[in-house]
Design a protein around this nucleic acid. Sequence first.
DNA 1: TCATTAAATTGTT
DNA 2: AACAATTTAATGA
Length: 245
Amino acid sequence: MVVISQTIATLSILRRIIMKIETPIREQLSKTIWACALTPQQLARVEVEVVSRTIAAGGYVCRKGDPVTHWIGVHEGLLKMSSVSPEGKTVSFAGMANGGWLGEGSLLKDEPRKYDVVALRDSELLYMPKATYLWLLDSSIAFNRFLVTQLNERLGLFISLVEYDRMLEPDARVARCLAALFNPYLNPGIGRELQISQEEIGNLSGASRQRANQALQVLEKAGLLKVDYGSITILDLDGLRQFHS
DNA sequence: TCATTAAATTGTT
DNA sequence: AACAATTTAATGA
């Protein structure tokens, strides 16, 4: 009896492993909002054409000026979108995390990449070919609706950047970066809590680790988030968006 | 399960 | 950038 139940248990584990190997794309896609809105036929084509790829920490996902051939999704990991100003300073706009997709603007306009994307940690990404993307655009209303919302969310992000011109204020800049990172539309897979070191936060928001540490303490005192060892928990997303000193 | 050690992260200057 | 303090993860008894 015992032997039989153990065998069954082993088999079920094996089956789970095999399933995971056979249908990783499907599982990964299930994390995204738009994939759930597609018809089975559409999803089937997407599953076939999307490929996954891992990028090691510190590696470039793409560089400014690269030709745009794919729409890129984050299955697991953390990315930073940044650009280099004419004076040679690196300016980061936003972080991308689980469930987020990037590059839709450049795909639509048929232009080279407008920014660098760097992996802050080992990340598993999904690449959707441009042809698939354009096909979805032509054939799925739901997909278009998702894109409109995503573009609108991003626009709001940039508007607020311009509106308050906070690029110079480290505390507010960290707050803004985190608010963008925890935007549930842009990064649906992210929860209220994220395992991220203060070094990564500094890297993400263009501040030194020391400065990020100070900023986090300020934000915690303001009741906007909670700082723990190796992770942070967002308490007030709106407050973070509107934070200023 | 517990103690020891190494590694990672944080707080401070 | 450097340092000490703290937390976690890994290892082996």
